[in-house]
Structure formats: C-alpha cells, structure tokens
Amino acid sequence: MTGRRLLTYGFAALLVIWTLVPIYWLFTMSMMFKTELLAIPTHLYPHEPTVSNYTRLFGGTAIGPGGAELPVIGQAPIIQNGLRNSLLVAVVVTAITMLVSLPVAYALGRLQFRGRTPMLFAIITTRSYPPIAIILPFVLLYSQVGLQGTVRGLVIVYLTLTIPMVIWVMTSFFSSLPRTVEAAARVDGNTRWQAFYRVILPMSWPGIAVATAISFMVCWNEFVFSQFLAAGSPAQTLPPAISTFFFQISQPTEMAAVSIISIVPPAILAYLFQRRIRNLNLVDPL
C-alpha cells in the first residue's frame, strides 16, 4: 500500500514538473538581465532577479548590472498598442458571440428538430478548418472592401471562430439541464421564449461564464488571422506584435517578459474556471 502511495506521489510530482517547467523557464528568463542569460554555465534561476524587462515595457528605464542605464524597450509602444487591441477585440467579439450563440445552442441542446444533426456537423466542421487554408480570400476580400488592418475586420472574422465554439460548449450545457424544466415553466403560463429567459437562462450562468471565458481566450490567443489581416497596422493585436518583436530584434529576456504578459489573462481565466471546465465536457457535447 505504501509502495503505491509513493508511486502516486512520484507521478503527481512528475505531472506538476511537466506542466510547470516551460512556464517556470519563461518566467526565469523574464527576470534576468540579458548578460546573465548568456552566462556559462546557464543559470537555472535568476541570481540577480530584475523586473526591468517588465517595467521597460511600460515606459520605465532601469539600471543594468554594470550600472549602465537601460532605456525603454524600443518596441514597447507596439506591444502596448497590441495589448489594447487584443483586449478590445476580445471583449467586443465575446459580447456579440454570447448574444448570438445562446439561442442557437438552446435550440440545439433542448429541441428536437429536423436539421439538428447537420447543423451540429456544420458547426464542428467550421470549428476545425485551418485558418491558413482560407486566409487568402479573406485578405483579398478585406483589401477590396477596406477592412484590411481594421479592428472591425478582425471582429468579423473572429466571430467565425467563437460562435461555433460557444454554440458547441453551450449546446452541451443546455442538454445537461433536467428535461422537465421547460415543461414546468410552460405549465406555469410562460411562453417558450419566457421559459428560455426566465427559467433556463438563470440556471445557466455557470455554463455561460465558462463559455464567455473560452470565447475571450480564443480571441486573445488567436494568431493567424490577426497576422495576415492586421499585422503592421494600428489595429494589430498582441500576437502579431509579438511575432514582429520575436523575429526582428528579439532580446530573449524582454521577449520572455512579453510572453508572460500574454499568458497571464488566459491563465487566470483557466484557473478560475478549471473546475467548471473539468465538468463541462468540451470534447463531446452530443
């Protein structure tokens, strides 16, 4: 018995290490001066921890290890602008997505009708197409109608990602509610519509919260569309800004700090909602 317990703890430790090591390393790098990063042998933790890679992203300067002043990071305005755009796009898209998707998910999750199966299939298919395969027509279309490099353009194209995702998740949630709920509400004199928003909706806040979080994360983490539809424009979100930073004047310690910042919002959401994500089946909503 103790042998098995030991084994369990051993594997649990392994699981934690596996999960955390990459993030630990990114964080460690972000807390180093670039001179320390190049030390031989490589330091496995910052011997001279510094937050300068973060402060220099937001307009601060810092004193380096040799006493020299480190200037503000040159790409800082682009990164800040990217952060603002990412937030704006994610919030707007998520708001529209929730309004639009909930009724559809309700129908798919609780009503029997012809066309339900094909509709589910269409939704899962739109969820699985590779953006890179259809990006070119979007680029050409967008440059014709003036949506290239605009926040509006990004919002429109992100809706095609989030709406199927949220419909998928919420269909799963709605179909998990007890079968008799609407019937009871209808007996009490509610119309179908009232049964939906007076009875079903208030029961559904847990699911709606998760779906909102997921929609936000999908937008926040999206790279391909923003790279090809908005890179280099004032509307570019954080990922293409990071891509520029990464490929042009990449200073790994500063890059690590930016990456950590990009990870924080979705990580917080995932942590807050992990119990619900675990219970809400994201893999199989049928």
């Binding site: 955390l20 983490n221 790279f223 990071i242 990009s262 990870i263 979705p266 995932a270």
Partner: peptide, 18 residues
Amino acid sequence: MALVILPWAVSLYATAIV
C-alpha cells in the same frame, strides 16, 4: 488538478516561444 489545465490556456504561439 487545477494546475494541469494551465498549458491549455497558453496560446499556441506562446507555447512555441516557450
């Protein structure tokens, strides 16, 4: 159990950089 979901929250591009 709460911790292991973390990588899923990390975007693919950030995963690549890490």
